[in-house]
Design a protein around this nucleic acid. Structure first.
Lengths: 198, 198, 198, 198
DNA sequence: GATGAATGAGACTTCATTCAT
DNA sequence: GATGAATGAAGTCTCATTCAT
């Protein structure tokens, strides 16, 4: 008994660290490696080693490698989105505010274009549906912010917010998917948003 | 040599025609197999066998497997799109016409959802740029038709057409990517299009 | 402690009965799943869930997954064999009686050929020796019945019974292992048994 | 041109070595490694390296690892069987001759019991049916030899040969599968064969 | 006895693509 | 242009089993 306590103090093992902490370590490890090496170039083994867990344990927290990407993205993006909305100038026009939001979001993706491409691919054709909740949570945060912006000028803020996001999404895909210039995509987007909000 | 010339004289354009016929056989074989077995489950060897050509010959006509999917899709989709636009009732409202177009396009994708998912993934993150021309050709046909529809009510038909397509594309992805119901996606889309065209 | 005694007095044999009941549930669960999904496709976790016990508890009752197969088989087969011997017509010739036995046994295996293949593989190359007793018990039952059949016509009933079973076993393997037709295997077997018993 | 010839002379490549030679090299490599390290412990990569071919090339010649075992076994066993039959004393009694054959065959398996266990398992539950021809060829050779032995004393040599082999097979499995002593298995077998041939 | 979170070994095979002919 | 034998990279995730509680 006394020994066990002593052992715990000397070498706190893996087991007592709780699930949440473990999940956090996994996401942290995945993020580091995905950004440093790319998605395909990162092996699940590397992530497990970096997170200090067993190879199999990883799959108790994420059903597949792609789910790890969603988890990484959701954490980062949610924070990013909240910052973006927090920093908006309320005096700017709705279109300007929307553009500010979307420009920042694109800038976020620009930091790691390849990883964002993999992410979009994953959103279009999900490898598992386990992380659907994460995506929903993120989308809700975005829609909520967009609605606040368009509310003053839109009869149906929800519809307008969804439309605005759809236009952004198309611009994003045009940029990521076909080498459409980011600037050109944004220019188009502004025109379209102006048209949308009359 | 002399023989070759003679053959050419007897059947002018023969080589070229052979090439086209061979390409047609390849696309036909790919389509059959992709639809029957799915994209990943179909091997390039199977396609070569079905098209009655050598394994290596295939890659003289398509740089990679994904290009075959684009070829299959472009042929089918271009025809589908033309039919759709041809059958529109010019008396219907622009929104109704747009919805008719998009409903038919979604119905086309519904015939093979999985294959459409692969296609969208491919459009978002192309494996090769060789078939970009095919995509452009198709998009031009679509934009052209959409512009005709929105022209009566839009100041900038090109912008409106692009926006309309963006809204459709988002609906499409929502449906394919997340099991969002097709009906629900279409309902949303109609509301958004109404908003867009005021 | 005192409580434990009291409990034991209230329900004597309770612990033992619980253990047997639990084992019965495990075997029942394993049988369902093996038959429904196949051996390889069934996980020990599924069996544990179905038997309503912990994942680790399973291995208190069976040293390994293969042992579960033996347990399933032994229960079923022992009952089957007893029925078969009970229903024999004593007036039939020994060869006819043997054939009746073996036909029924093959029919039993025919109900789940794939599982029987796994079983035979397991008998040829056992994963553990823990369940050897089960196999012996079953074999004894079979030999005993076969000896009763051949006794009237064999000088050494034990030898004849063993030979008869060997001939059956070969027929069984020929059928399971190589797609030899069941009918053909049985025809061969009858000829061989006739030769054996003169 | 001249260069190509020079290169060929300096470094005769893989390609010109024909298919048969390649298959022989593969089987040779597999045999070495299976015997030296055991079946499970040998990787297909090792075999490919040893045979001096590409990893994938291996699977042009054997559909799966198990097929390699059949190929190895068939070659060895066919030779072994022919030797055994060639060396029989025609003056010995049929039972003695049969026993000589089966003792030698068991001795062959005794040289690598574990590999033989894997082989038997494979025969009971084949991983592929591609090598069925090999098994048939071997069995034909064995049956043919056995028929010659039993012909003098059996009305139906074919049936007797098959029965004799079945009895041997059962003894073999008893020995390999359950640690039944080889000597005991052979003793039983002799008794049974005596009974069979009256 | 019971639990269930954690472990970690593990190597096969596929199949798009190439390139010598 | 056509062929098809040869290549070889590649790495996830499963799942039986353990063992601290």
């Amino acid at each position: 008994m006394a020994n066990a306590v002593a052992l715990d103090q000397l070498a706190p093992g893996r087991r007592e660290r709780n699930k949440l902490e473990k999940q956090a370590r996994i996401v942290w490890a995945a993020r580091q490696l995905f950004h440093r090496q790319g998605f395909a170039e990162t092996t699940t083994q590397q992530i497990a080693v970096e997170a200090d867990i067993g190879t199999g344990t990883l799959f108790l927290y994420a059903k597949c490698k792609e789910d790890l990407l969603i988890m990484v993205f959701k954490d980062e993006m949610l924070e990013t989105v909240r910052e973006i909305f927090a920093r908006l100038s309320p005096k700017a026009s709705p279109v300007d505010q929307l553009m500010a939001v979307f420009e920042h979001m694109m800038a976020y993706h620009a930091r790691d274009i390849d990883l964002s491409r993999v992410l979009l691919r994953e959103l279009v054709m999900p490898s598992s549906l386990d992380r659907r909740g994460d995506v929903t949570e993120l989308m809700d945060a975005i829609y909520s912010g967009l609605m606040d912006i368009v509310r003053p000028v839109a009869d149906e803020p929800e519809v307008a917010a969804r439309s605005a996001f759809a236009l952004y999404y198309f611009a994003l895909i045009s940029w990521l998917g076909r080498g459409f210039e980011r600037r050109a995509a944004l220019t188009h987007l502004r025109t379209q948003l102006s048209g949308l909000l009359k």
